[in-house]
Design a protein around this nucleic acid. Structure first.
Lengths: 399, 399
DNA sequence: ACCGTCCCTGAATCATTGG
DNA sequence: TCCAATGATTCAGGGACGG
């Protein structure tokens, strides 16, 4: 079969041309039934991409999904799977179609793709997840278990301990004759869960092509990795900007994409040529790198009723309450700083900003003092620990 | 209406006895249609709890859900909401019932409760989430937005600045005539998202009562906090071990629980009872196990380099460092105490102990003062928040 | 009721500066 | 020249507003 191509046309029709039992994975990412037209322009504004997600009725929409799914099932090998990406708008209706076409017994997982995104003024909770239904064609489906690191919150000791069941069927730690817990053999890690926290494709990322609803390559990598091996064939009947094909190429799988929009097809081809993939800094480095405050500093900020600021060496946080209608920056004297250093830093970070008050938390006794060549109106407050220390020495003197 | 009780019986029948438009929140946690009998024994194995989640057909199950939901809708105030807790087994079917009973337009959120879990040997992804559907009765529903911390990748000091669009429509920082950046209005934090990562059971807490499918108190706290105010009435028609009632009581809401199992009703009552004991005599379990309210106090103690103690109403912690070879007790002025109350309490708790220093952290401005009929040498230190408050008012006076 | 348009937000990148 | 620090920018999806 001819692979590694993007087909332009209506997917139900075009799928007809493909012969059965050839495909290992279908990534099925239809419009979400938002009843909106989605528009976005490319980075240099040279091109406007749009697609229409408006239907006369939910039934018309579901009919499209069902017809396409029936075709996809035909094309799948017995070891194949489908991953259907949708959001809360129509997920319940879609799953009923999936149960109908693939059978309840082939439902494998409801994957939650969870991410952080800029907020808005919505009354209620901020949407920050989408849903991916994982159905297999048969129970002989291909699956590569991925093991992840133990989460930092997990008690590692407990994982490494062997367990057994007591006479009441409760799971307990296995102990030797002397009552000591037995340390089990090394374990591989935790199998991948069905909640995936993968960064949303950031508006600034180079990977962004300008096509609306573009999915991150990292998400597709995960799907392709768990459900296929090298050389397998991946089909995306609503391929849009071609993320699935990019990911498939990257992971040495074959791919077939289909889209009704010729703009999408052209874009997908050019992305396959360029292969621009943003290596998420966040994923690479981990959130920990950004969390630069010590426990102590965070405790002080929480005491002040302030929220922390991570990327400014002159400001550690801002009070939640304003003063004269303006935010109040706070700097905590660092371990290798004098109070004067701290004052200088917060003043520097405040240049050009008309703060009405600035606060420095003094954490250590001053030994030296120096004169400033600038005027300052910083308020200095001593940390509780420092006050206690002073109290200690004051009392000693009294003896 | 009579509240704060657990009713034993079939919930459809028992809901009939309650009059309409009284309830602010329904937490609806039916069996998940697992088609299994769930059994679990209590911590000391003295009691085996079980409940039956087997039905002749999905339709029988859904009919039960629908009948109960119709009753619940009748009981809700117009400002009320229902949170229906289920898992992937039947979530799609249940949501169709919810759409039918409450209307599509009153669907607010699909909340994902995600948690870490022991791995199992199943082929495929590890299930580690459950679903909570949030529907309101009308669009006038009550909602308290909770604000969470900003992401560590956010440059908060930057986004505090006002922005405007330049002639090319680009977003730029707003500046005044002198070229200084204009500081915008205050930030409250990021609105709570619809993905909640809450541990299955609080590892610190000996929360588990042994009842199958018991939900963590923190999960219920979150639901109750966003959808009700103090004094509101919470209804749980499938209350099981009574977590909803425990949480409601903790957060000063009224509650009504219903369960068919008399064992469940008794267990719920005893959990509620135990709370009273915990509260009044501060025996066994520390309150921080149940509440995040004391987080502020924990932060103060950490600031003081002190460790917390749980079971003493006159002493909140001890400094890690000793003074004159003796431990130094610390008491934090509580929300409903004057400084004098706090001093009296710590003195009382110190009788017969030869502490060389005692510390009270003052958290609020004193309004009244009274004379003591005893001598005191307590050291009073003002909390950082209080010092800031004083600084605010001092500066105002200077104007 | 239903458009279209503008404004606001903040996560996470890219771009530039500074040492 | 390179890396760290910090300054600048993007845009989905709400609400508000005007027609």
């Amino acid at each position: 079969m001819e692979t590694n191509k993007i087909i332009h046309g209506n997917c139900v029709e075009k799928l007809n041309d493909i012969s059965s039992h050839q495909i290992d994975l279908v990534y099925f990412d239809p419009p979400f039934f938002t009843q909106k037209k989605h528009t976005l322009s490319s980075r240099d504004n040279s091109k406007v991409y749009e697609f229409d997600d408006k239907y006369d009725s939910i039934d018309e929409y579901l009919q499209l999904i069902e017809n396409t799914l029936i075709q996809c099932k035909r094309l799948l090998k017995d070891s194949g799977s489908v991953f259907l990406h949708c959001d809360k708008t129509a997920s319940h209706n879609i799953r009923i179609i999936l149960d109908k076409v693939f059978g309840k017994e082939n439902f494998q997982s409801e994957i939650i793709w969870s991410y952080k995104r800029w907020s808005n003024a919505k009354k209620g909770l901020l949407n920050s997840h989408q849903i991916i239904f994982f159905y297999s064609k048969t129970d002989q489906f291909k699956f590569n278990t991925i093991y992840t690191d133990y989460s930092a919150t997990t008690n590692l000791d407990q994982i490494l301990q062997d367990r057994e069941r007591n006479e009441n069927g409760k799971s307990i730690y296995k102990r030797d004759d002397e009552g000591n817990v037995i340390i089990g053999k090394g374990k591989k890690g935790v199998p991948l869960s069905d909640v995936w926290e993968i960064p949303y494709l950031n508006p600034k990322a180079k990977e962004r092509s300008g096509y609306p609803t573009q999915k991150p390559v990292l998400l597709l990598n995960q799907i392709i990795n768990i459900s296929t091996n090298e050389g397998d064939i991946v089909l995306d009947p609503f391929c849009g900007s071609g993320t699935t094909c990019v990911s498939a190429k990257l992971l040495k799988r074959k791919y077939i994409g289909i889209d009704v929009s010729i703009d999408a097809v052209n874009l997908a081809y050019s992305r396959l040529e360029e292969m621009v993939i943003t290596e998420s800094n966040l994923l690479k480095k981990g959130m920990d790198v950004y969390l630069e405050k010590t426990e102590k500093e965070l405790a002080i900020l929480s005491n002040l009723n302030a929220f922390p600021v991570q990327r400014n060496s002159g400001i550690d946080g801002f009070l939640k309450e304003h003063y004269e209608g303006k935010p109040v920056p706070v700097k905590i004297q660092g371990e290798y700083e004098t109070v004067e250093d701290a004052i200088e830093k917060i003043e520097k970070a405040s240049i050009g900003k008309s703060y009405a008050m600035k606060i420095v938390i003094q954490t250590r006794v001053s030994k030296t003092s120096r004169l400033f060549d600038f005027q300052t109106d910083v308020v200095i407050i001593k940390s509780l620990e420092l006050q206690i220390k002073e109290e200690f020495s004051r009392c000693y003197r009294n003896i």
